[in-house]
Amino acid sequence: MAVPVETLPETDAGEKPPVVVKKYANRRLYNTESSSYITLDNLADMVRQGRNFVVYDAKSGDDITRGVLTQIIVEEEGKGQNLLPINFLRQLIGLYGGSMQGLVPKYLEHAMTSFAQQQEQMRAAMQKTMGTLFPFGNIEEVGRQNMAMMERAFSLFTPFYRGTETANPSGSNDTEIESLRSEIERLRRELEAARKQ
């Protein structure tokens, strides 16, 4: 009986070689890099992290990566993560065995690559735009500052309001008012500086 030779896909010089995963008859997946058994969810996480892998049948040595990736998609769709529209699935099934079948994989690969590039460009444009709209930091930080300011304002103007901070038992709100004034002044200066740029 001949032992099949495992061939790994070509990789760029700076890119890590793909992780070799073996699938056994009991349907368990074994990650040869970490020397541990893994699940389809682990493989899905690897895809999301951009880590490449190949899956071989442990007995025959056949490359079954395509089938395992398809199985991951089926499981994700089963969890309610409906990414593939029904009409798309019907059209895709209709292309099997047709004259266009040979063109479809390259077309889909090109379309997904273009989509990923456009998504990254959109993300970069949004970050650039939001960075100029909010000169004093990222959106999350601005949101936190606004919420803290609102909490303090509500506690000052509503005697029965109890936000996330406990009321000052001494009844001295002077330091809070002064802190609020200095924060408003700091934000005003940052906004003016941003307008001058």
Rank of each mutant, 00 (worst) to 15 (best):
V142P: 10
P17Q: 10
S36K: 08
V21I: 05
Q127C: 09
G137D: 01
F53A: 03
N42Q: 11
E6T: 13
R48M: 05
N42L: 08
G137I: 03
F115R: 08
A111H: 05
E190D: 07
E6W: 15
S182L: 06
Q91S: 14
I64D: 01
T11F: 05
N31I: 07
T166D: 08
R90W: 02
I86S: 15
M100Y: 13
L89R: 07
G102D: 03
L191R: 04
E10K: 13
L69D: 06
V5Q: 03
R186Q: 13
R28M: 14
Q127R: 15
A25F: 09
E185F: 15
F88M: 13
M122W: 07
R27F: 15
D45F: 08
H110Y: 11
A2S: 11
S170W: 12
T113I: 03
Q119P: 00
R27K: 10
D45C: 08
Y37G: 00
G78C: 02
R144A: 10
R189D: 05
L69R: 06
Y161N: 00
N31F: 04
A194K: 02
Q49H: 14
G50Q: 02
N52K: 12
T70D: 10
R181D: 11
R28K: 12
V74M: 12
M126R: 10
E140R: 09
V55H: 05
Q117L: 02
D41K: 11
E120K: 05
K59E: 15
